Amino acid sequence: MPGAYGSEIMREGRRYRLSFTVGGLLAPQGRILAALFMADGGFSAGSDAPESELGERVERVRQRAIDGNVLAIRTHAANVRMVREVLKRLSALTERELRYLAAAGTPMDDCRALMWLAMCRYYAIVGEFADEVLRDRYLMGMPTVTRGDYDRFILAKAMWHPELEELSPTTAGKLRSNVFKAMDEAGLVEKTDGTLLPSLLGAPLTAILECRPESFAYFPIREH
């Protein structure tokens, strides 16, 4: 399944991944499945390992998670969908990031930050919104980020990405709602009024992300 796993790298003519219609941040689920990755021996999405190898490892963990219903989801169909979505996002994290996510002593705030990072890397449109709107507004001293800001961002991107224009109003609305739900759950914005909240990344997580400093662009923080 080419292009199914790992960070989304946008090139000319490539269409955005646009399947983040449900689930929000999925931090508790991400932590559970990250532990399964570590039990399986881990992998490094940031290495030069072929995508086929990464895919094989993801599929192996996916089957174990579904068979064991480790997320404790009532119906099989919903379990399959949830496991698939969480694993897609986790495939964008490095092994060191996954290990920290899975560790029992990792603060939940850092787990949520890692799952936001995973969402931004796996879905380039979310990462670009985080960088170009969320963080930029914070750095310019603007106090909020609104759904109107998101709509204007998508409208500008649609000039070069017709797949955004092809979305039905219902799907477009679900995508927008899920981005804002994820930002709320990650502690980046206030749910009620969209007030921006500066990210307070823990020292261990900050040290991990310094290996890939571009990761800080997805958070409302000052220049790192």
Rank of each mutant, 00 (worst) to 15 (best):
A203N: 10
H161R: 04
F219A: 10
L175E: 11
V189I: 15
V145E: 13
D184F: 10
E56F: 09
T170S: 13
D149P: 04
R62A: 06
A130K: 02
L167I: 12
V189P: 11
V22D: 05
F129C: 00
A130W: 02
A39T: 13
M183A: 15
G23N: 00
V83L: 04
L54Y: 06
T106S: 04
D149G: 04
E165N: 14
A27E: 10
G30C: 09
R176Y: 12
H161K: 05
F219S: 08
L134A: 01
M183S: 11
M142H: 09
P162D: 07
G6Y: 11
E56G: 14
A104T: 04
C211M: 03
S19V: 01
T206D: 08
A45L: 07
G194R: 09
L200R: 15
Y123H: 15
A27H: 06
F37T: 01
A172M: 12
V83H: 07
G173E: 03
R15A: 11
P198K: 09
S52W: 15
L71H: 14
K157E: 14
A104I: 02
L54E: 08
R57H: 13
L87I: 01
E210P: 03
L196K: 12
M159T: 12
G13V: 00
A78Y: 02
F219G: 08
R60S: 11
D184E: 15
A182P: 08
L18E: 01
R64C: 05
R60V: 05
T106I: 05
M159W: 09
M10W: 08
R62S: 07
S215E: 03
A39E: 15
I9W: 04
F219D: 07
T75V: 05
R176N: 12
M115A: 04
L36I: 02
V58L: 13
R222G: 11
S215Y: 01
A78S: 13
R112E: 07
T21F: 03
L26V: 03
